[in-house]
Design a protein around this nucleic acid. Structure first.
Length: 341
DNA sequence: AATTCGGGGAT
DNA sequence: ATCCCAGAATT
């Protein structure tokens, strides 16, 4: 039996019941694929259901505000996915008459859609012969065929896409693609897979050569930068506070946060500097909310964070009631603070 | 070609 | 701590 047939047979027996598996609607498939980029099924599922409910069609998504889209995306991370999702919905409604592109070639032109996602939508929604290559597929192919090319090198990316295309099933591409990913997620797991019950264990190169723990090969680990965040939590005469939207480059684009001073600082320094971000506000009292820094860990940055409670007498024009903060899309770091404050 | 985008779960 | 997740865009 061929590799692809074994994958298909395994999938038929082991596939999970997931919300986006009840449809081939390209809008729904697109939604699920964007959400699941670099995201586990367990984390993404509730967000998928939420978006499906709030935006049943691409028109609903296109007509929504970015703020609402980001709010529903809050906590899922990689927020450019949400901004691009919204941009592409508007693009399809405005420029493509609301009709979703139906070929790999056209799909890959969409913002936020790369080789993987275009292949997934083309194969699942339109039955086009396109092999998906995600993290699961890299692992399954690297092990089964004993390939030690780094999966994140230009040569590796090209090689694995070619290999995936060569070994894909010639029919049932829809189930085959989902099957090889499911197989990678459940059976050919990153760590300590149970190869004794694997249907491919009679022909897996990595298993025969005892390389299961060594493959796939991935180049270099990332370097983590440390940053010091000092958030100014203003409390004005009405008990309201201030938020600012993050603009420009960097993390959390277009999300909201308290006014931020990014530097090492003690109470005196903060007191001296607060008017840099709040020039119109006179501070009456300032106190440190958390003595030990809250360390918020992102993949490339560790944020050592202090929250400063800044009391002022005046009533701020753009003050926001604390009970209204939940309306704004904020990073998890801010949401966690609001919860405990 | 290398870096940068989040957050969480498993080990 | 480290790894990695149904990757893509930017530098």
């Amino acid at each position: 039996m061929t590799f692809s047939q074994k994958i298909l047979d395994w999938y038929a027996l082991n596939k999970r019941s997931l919300p986006w598996r009840n449809t081939v609607n390209p809008y729904k498939i697109w939604l699920s694929e964007i959400m699941l980029q670099q995201t586990r099924v367990a984390q993404g599922t509730s967000y998928y259901l939420s978006f499906e409910k709030h935006f049943p069609t691409i028109f609903d998504l296109a007509n929504a505000s970015e703020e609402k889209v980001l709010k529903l995306w809050q906590g899922l991370g990689y927020y450019s996915r949400a901004r691009n999702l919204h941009f592409t919905a508007k693009h399809i409604v405005t420029n493509l008459n609301g009709e979703f592109p139906n070929t790999y070639k056209e799909l890959v032109k969409l913002k936020g859609v790369g080789d993987y996602t275009a292949s997934a939508i083309a194969s699942i929604s339109f039955n086009e012969q396109q092999a998906v290559v995600d993290g699961n597929v890299y692992r399954v192919l690297a092990r089964y065929y004993g390939v030690d090319l780094p999966i994140n090198s230009a040569e590796g990316i090209k090689y694995f896409k070619t290999l995936a295309t060569e070994v894909m099933h010639s029919s049932d591409i829809r189930d085959y693609n989902q099957g090889i990913m499911e197989f990678g997620a459940l059976q050919c797991a990153p760590k300590n897979p149970d190869c004794t019950i694997c249907p491919l264990n009679d022909s897996c190169v990595a298993l025969q050569k005892n390389l299961v723990g060594k493959l796939p090969v991935k180049l270099k680990k990332i370097k983590v930068k440390k940053r010091n965040f000092n958030y100014l939590v203003v409390v004005d005469g009405n008990g309201n506070t201030l938020l600012q939207q993050r603009t420009g480059k960097g993390i959390w684009q277009n999300l909201y946060q308290f006014p931020l001073l990014e530097e090492e600082a003690d109470a005196k320094t903060i007191y001296d500097l607060y008017n840099k971000v709040l020039p119109t506000v006179k501070a009456k009292d300032i106190r440190l909310f958390n003595k030990d820094a809250i360390v918020h860990k992102l993949s490339h940055q560790h944020l050592f964070t202090h929250f400063w409670i800044l009391k002022v007498d005046e009533v701020l024009e753009d003050g926001i009631a604390f009970s209204d903060l939940e309306k704004y899309p904020v990073p998890v770091l801010i949401a966690d603070f609001i919860k405990t404050f």
